[in-house]
Nucleic acid binder design. Sequence first.
RNA 1: GUGGAUGUAGCUCAGUUGGUUAGAGUGCUGGAUUGUGGUUCCAGAGGUCGCCGGUUCGAACCCGGUCUUCCACCCCA
Length: 456
Amino acid sequence: MADKPSIPKGTRDFSPLEMARRNHIFDTIRRIFKVHGFLPIETPAMENLSTLMGKYGDEGDKLLFKILNSGDFKSKLSPEELSETPAGRLGTKISEKGLRYDLTVPFARYVVQHRNEIDFPFKRYQIQPVWRADRPQRGRYREFYQCDVDVIGSNSLLNEFELIQIIDEVFQALSLKVVIKLNNRKVLAGCAEVIGAPEQMIDITVAIDKLEKIGLEKVLAELVQKGLSPDSVTKLEPLLKMEGSTAEKLIFLAGFLEGSELGMAGLQEVRTLLAYVEADPLGSEVELDLTLARGLNYYTGSILEVKSAEYAIGSICGGGRYDDLTGIFGLEGVSGVGVSFGADRIYDVLLQLERFPQRGDLDTRLLFVNFGEAEVKHIIPILGRLRKSGIASELYPDQTKMKKQMNYANNRKIPFVALLGEQEIADGMITLKDMETGMQERLTPEQLVERISSAK
RNA sequence: GUGGAUGUAGCUCAGUUGGUUAGAGUGCUGGAUUGUGGUUCCAGAGGUCGCCGGUUCGAACCCGGUCUUCCACCCCA
């Protein structure tokens, strides 16, 4: 026998049950995006490598899936180039395309490319798979879906506020308790400025991010190792020790950031945003979290991240404001803000917490038992009528033992089975069996439609 | 990219110091029950023990490699 067929590492097949559950997530998210006036777009699975490279940092570049050029891709290369070790740079010479790594960069490309057709501010949503050559783990796949909403061409913090509302509405609709974490890149930059190490903002934020995991002492040691002066470390310490409610943190930061124009501006943004949130309180908890750094280097203002309050799996939604993104593609001064829902992780959380709805609207409601050709001719028009009434119904395609047909209905969790055999044909009735109670009743076709419709 | 585990029937898992025909539960097929599923009883099918190589008279078991999945880093959705 040949080797069993398989799929690439980190990819998955989805069964009908899994698809029903995934669609529950996608439908919920899409519905809420639409209600907020966002419009859908799609972009190709593959982009030019020049569009993708350098947008996600060195780490990100390594995680890009590259597509080998078609044809004789090595004909133009010299023997020296071909035998080069390590083969790192060779990759970009034999490949010009790559699979998209996220939806934000392709969106930025889209905006720049179609700038003359777009009405700004442009509110778009996009639900598509992305690919990363990462090492798979729980909640981490090489092919996974992102559900992005972005507003581009508006500086207003009302956009951030709307995204927070969307997050809240989505997770309420999915019955998940989440914590929405909020931070601001300008505040982080201000902190770096105040302690006299503006160049090392990235190092500092990464270190702050690890605070919860490795503790204060190790974070400080790491910072010293990264080249931060002892004086700066001393100045940073009170920030790391900052505790208390969001309101208390704001007061502390107002003092800490004094002297940094950028930092104070960031702080004011946070205050404004929180004031909007207070105007119509959310179901989810919103907190200011300075340890939220986020790796992507294009965020410039607000940073958002959402975690499940009930199940630890990393962030299930994240995003922020990026002032400079379209600048990379030659369109300056267009600010955007957006978030991305991680459908696959949300799936894992819902599954773990058993929060998926019992059954979907599209599941078959009624199965006709197949007794043979003569009976089938009577069933066909009734089946058509049921379907026109929006009742998902089936006729078992083969004339087999009733036991087998009943079993099929049972396994598929079809709630009703209709019997139309010789006896029923004779008196123009249909026998309807309720699979849950086992009760049977005789109905006319009209009554049958009525009965199934009202049973929903 | 670094380190550590894992892989036996469709699924969940046993498997004695390496010793003949590799087991259970569940699911599947058939029968008890020829117009009635879920319960019960009986019977049956289904596995070159992830793959390749090595050690051995002999390997599911020991060794090496490889792939998969999982876990911790890194990073992230």
